[in-house]
Design a protein around this nucleic acid. Structure first.
Lengths: 191, 191, 191, 191
DNA sequence: GCTTAAGCGAGACGGTACGTCTGGTCTTTGG
DNA sequence: CCAAAGACCAGACGTACCGTCTCGCTTAAGC
């Protein structure tokens, strides 16, 4: 596979081929078994072209994460207006994904543990893009836990954290687990 | 007619030397840079002696974890009777450890992401030995979040999860962060 | 006080496979295009097994030379009793080989220029094993140049040197050239 | 009517800078470690400018040789009228140079082995410019070996060849060796 | 006490991937 | 429109570890 040659400015074609190869290999074999040589071969690129622009495997994965090449749309938080129901539905989906493809999340965690840049991006991806704390803010007053003045950002972090822990401990989780977790975090409906 | 079992038995000295070398190298260089060859050399042991008894680097680390060789005593949850104060104090300490030696926790997370056995043990170590959910159970009724029937185990998980997330995202945290997190999880004092 | 333990021993099979692969690739592609990776692949051997026992490509080639894997029997000096005729016949053969496969000799020269060990072995192979100076010694008195007291070793060196020069300059040489050279070195028949 | 094709012409400055950089790097690091990239960097020139005008590293070195950039004047054959003495003196100098800077000659030999053009030029440089065979011709009759009808060109070749062989085999040589070699080639003084 | 087989230290083996270096080609940009 | 600069693909370099496999030694259980 040969790419169209470009000049002494950075080749966008090469960059894209590399990121796509990274995402594909990451999905297929996981972070641990992702190799620079494998990416280079798959992308039809010289190894040096990777080393020229990325410092490490982790930086490569971080950029994939940033470009949204690693997550699909299943993991978006739904918005029906009912925070509790939305969160339960979302958590149930997330648990199902972790059960079905534990490697995806675990690989991401391994990458995050190894490279600060992945860690930072991962947190943004999880708390930010799913915008959980935003939804919690909007629902303040509707449950006992969401009382005025509560730090919704920490609640969101705790929720995501619980998910991460379940992934790490390989405990398989179902809809009931999701409900229990949401109830624990949100409290009862406000009177 | 059974074949006679003869021959020497497993060397306890070798086992201990290996676990100690593993713990030392883990602390010095982190999980990623821990190598079986390095452990063998440090322990003054043949590689085969390691492979005979452990299936992988992860199994080695998991056993160290189980034997308490990786954590020191700083990380025990204090018990003054005041749950909120105890948790804040504990979290503050944990955050300080993460800030001071991020490698320790991150390496453990990397190991957990790679090896199920480490993940399982890690969760036990964190939630079990600190026995957070036990303390929460005992405090039911004392805060708005600790209402009767709440799943304290999920609350404990969420709390630990938040800690893990902060470690992964390398956000440095202080006593205020600890307080905010505890307040978000526990809610207000009960009336 | 413990004696050094012995451990596994060097694999003769690997050693031979490596030398044979080296000789084959040397003959096929020449010294310049001989690569350690190629030798390892051809020999079915890990690269480290080569680096463990040889310091360089040159050392490898030198050992092949020493084991006689690079030269075939065409290049042995015949012995009919007539020194002049033998030398002419031999030179004619050597010139023919150089004309037909210049790469063989040139590669050897390149290797010798790069690695002292090859140079030393090459000289031994050429002057020693062909034992030209021995033949000259035996013929002392039979030609004007082979007078008593003459340094036959230098004469042999000069002869071989002339051959090397012709190889380097790619001048194709025939039987007449061989005769002229032999006559120049040996002088006329003694009266 | 067509305008004369103008356009820039080959830059003499670039050509000289390249040749000088080549000669300098050759002297410093030898033929093996001479790289096109190194030459380009040293000459302040793009790699393509080299590849445009020379086909290979060898061609570059050959042109340096032709321009006399590689040899200094030490290596000229003196002319006192006494052939034997002149040759001994010259050989002694040559041996000393080889002993002191073996890399220079060896690098040249490596280049010659790799590239025909260098080989041809090298032979011309050595036999031609030192014009040994001319001197031998002029001395015909003065020694037993220099009898009428002898092929002085082959004698010259043999002499140079002996020098080349000594360089290749790294045998250090002194004035006595020079004398022995000259005596072997020239024979005794004619009666 | 002798036999004998497993555990031991050591380390060679076939491999994979690393991160670096150079070769030779091809473009862009500036003079 | 040439020459500098340098990005590109390709692939060899020498190193680090992997996990497996002998080696010869030591040692404890069972005859």
């Amino acid at each position: 596979m040969s790419l169209p040659r470009t000049g002494p400015v950075r080749s966008e074609a090469a960059r894209l081929a590399i990121l796509e190869a990274t995402a594909a290999l990451f999905a297929e074999r996981g972070y641990e078994h992702l190799t620079i040589e494998g990416v280079a071969a798959r992308a039809g690129v010289g190894k040096q072209t990777i080393y020229r622009w990325w410092r490490s495997k982790g930086a490569l994965v971080a950029e994939c994460l940033l470009e949204g090449l690693l997550f699909d749309d299943r993991l978006a938080l739904p918005d029906t207006g009912d925070v509790r129901a939305d969160m339960q539905a979302w958590l149930t989906t997330v648990f199902a994904v972790i059960d079905a493809e534990p490697g995806l999340v675990l690989s991401l965690l391994a990458a995050a543990a190894e490279h600060p840049e992945v860690g930072a991006r991962l947190r943004d991806s999880l708390t930010g893009s799913a915008s959980i704390s935003g939804r919690l803010d909007a629902a303040i007053g509707s449950t006992t836990a969401l009382r005025p003045g509560v730090a919704t950002e920490q609640l969101a972090e705790a929720l995501i954290g619980a998910v991460v822990l379940r992934a790490l401990s390989r405990s398989s989780s179902d809809a009931d687990d999701a409900a229990r977790l949401v109830d624990a975090i949100l409290g009862d409906a406000a009177d």
